[in-house]
Amino acid sequence: MGKLTINQREFDIRADDDTPLLWVLRDELGLTGTKYGCGKALCGACTVLIDGAPRRACVTPIAAVAKQSITTIEGARSKLAQTVIKAWLDLDVAQCGYCQSGQILAAVALLEKNPHPSDAQINEAMDGNLCRCATYVRIRTAIHRAAEQLA
């Protein structure tokens, strides 16, 4: 129904304006790194960055982000994002891996705003991103490590 800017590329979109961004990314554009976990902004698996801020794609109609810059895990190429991904790999955070695109993008958004988050600030920023495999200990450590490496 219009255009979307995703990972710095412009896409023509066929879906209706009220379609959630998640399903446009996944079913129309084949950007399947963004996951479905709950459909109700309760798990964070669908987290993408909208102008750098984390948003739940499952409850974001495409019309609401038509003019903004959307980043998905496939486009997480900034130095900061690469540092976060590297920290994730060094600690082998992922188990089933299903939540990790969302976790990584949420961590990128946090570090973008706050280069040295405390544990409490990590809790606040990351608490909406559920990990059923409970990789939380490593997620926290990876965020601290990425922060150190970016300093």
């Binding site: 996944r26 399947t32 790194g33 963004t34 996951k35 479905y36 998905t72 895990i73 496939e74 991904i85 994730w88 790999l89 082998d92 955070v93 992922a94 891996g97 299903y98 990790q100 695109s101 990584i104």
Partner: peptide, 18 residues
């Protein structure tokens, strides 16, 4: 290191839903 780590941290691992 896990053999599936790289794919899973880049959104490239293929699940049924994908």
């Amino acid at each position: 290191a896990r053999t599936d780590g790289v794919a899973k941290t880049h959104g490239q691992a293929l699940y049924t839903i994908d």
